[in-house]
């Protein structure tokens, strides 16, 4: 049986699917009775989504245009 501290330490790895079977089973057993750690795991998942959400930023048109100009100039000098 693992403690809350041990479970919390591995939550992101658990969500990433990066744990070996034995560790994953230990986390799931812990989550089956620990409401607080269930909250932790839900929040860790929200944080992952939160980080990924920020990836959708668009490149400004003027920056894109300057980079395309760089591409157009490659190998021509």
């Amino acid at each position: 049986m693992i403690s809350c501290a041990e479970a919390v330490e591995q939550l992101w790895e658990y969500l990433d699917g990066a744990l070996i079977e034995q560790d994953r089973a230990a986390i799931e057993e812990h989550l089956s009775f620990c409401r607080r750690c269930c909250g932790e795991v839900e929040f860790a998942d929200e944080l992952r989504v939160f980080l990924a959400r920020e990836a959708s930023e668009e490149i400004p048109d003027e920056v894109r245009a300057r980079l395309i100009t760089t591409l157009d100039g490659l190998g021509t000098v």
Partner: peptide, 8 residues
């Protein structure tokens, strides 16, 4: 094709 991703 990679520009938006690289910039982000």
């Amino acid at each position: 094709e990679q520009l938006p991703r690289l910039f982000a």
